[in-house]
């Protein structure tokens, strides 16, 4: 039996309300709801918070290349925001909140972070695949000027600047010339979904009746 098994209740409490879980801050919300419902003991709650702290320290070390033990608060906030985004991605692999809570109960923050990084990398890889698809549409003269400008401007820049350890959650701004209204996409997951939607629209337009 490992350290975590001793802290996880054998029977899930009935008080856990999946509807109260906020998907936009999944890790923190699951911790909140899990604790309130008795799903997580105080000891497990503290353990996860300490692990979060240790991971944040690792991220600060990565950010400064180990050359500074402190950073500006704004930097720390950005690093924590990204860390939580990656943990949210990992927990989103569970089919629903109760399963995600169970995952959080049995999985320490470090492997959750690694799983989140893996998921983020897959989202980013697929974003790049969609970028290539958009270039093919362009080569076939099937890409309107708005999306073409986005492809070579905002999207290119956003892809170039991704370092998932630090900015996987950064917004991708999509101007109104692409979807008819401007959109602010949070992180690599929403970016991938929007690019898939754009490619699908272009494909439908290309295949549709003239």
């Amino acid at each position: 039996m490992n350290r975590n098994d001793t802290l996880v209740p054998q029977v899930f409490a009935d008080g856990f309300d999946p509807a109260r879980v906020d998907r936009s801050r999944y890790f923190l919300s699951l911790l909140d709801e899990g604790r309130a419902a008795g799903l997580f003991s105080e000891a497990l709650f503290s353990l996860r918070m300490n692990e979060l702290m240790e991971r944040l320290a690792e991220q600060i070390g990565l950010w400064t290349n180990g050359r500074s033990s402190s950073v500006m608060q704004e930097t720390a906030e950005a690093l924590l925001n990204n860390l939580l985004y990656l943990l949210d991605l990992a927990l989103s692999a569970a089919p629903e909140p109760r399963a995600a809570a169970a995952m959080l109960a049995r999985t320490p923050v470090f492997p959750l972070y690694e799983a989140g990084m893996l998921a983020a990398r897959r989202h980013l890889d697929r974003c790049r695949v969609y970028e290539l698809a958009l270039k093919k549409f362009e080569a076939m003269v099937l890409l309107p000027p708005g999306p073409a400008h986005f492809l070579h401007g905002g999207l290119r820049l956003w892809l170039d600047e991704r370092d998932l350890r630090f900015n996987a959650c950064e917004e991708l701004y999509v101007p109104s010339s692409v979807f008819g209204r401007s959109r602010r996409l949070r992180g690599v997951a929403e970016a991938e979904a929007a690019l898939a939607e754009l490619c699908e629209r272009l494909r439908s337009n290309a295949a549709g009746p003239v």
Binding site: A57, S69, S70, M72, Q73, E74, T75
Partner: peptide, 10 residues
């Protein structure tokens, strides 16, 4: 100084 430090630090 609006700084954040984790661990024993400097």
């Amino acid at each position: 100084t609006r700084r954040f430090e984790v661990g024993p630090g400097a």
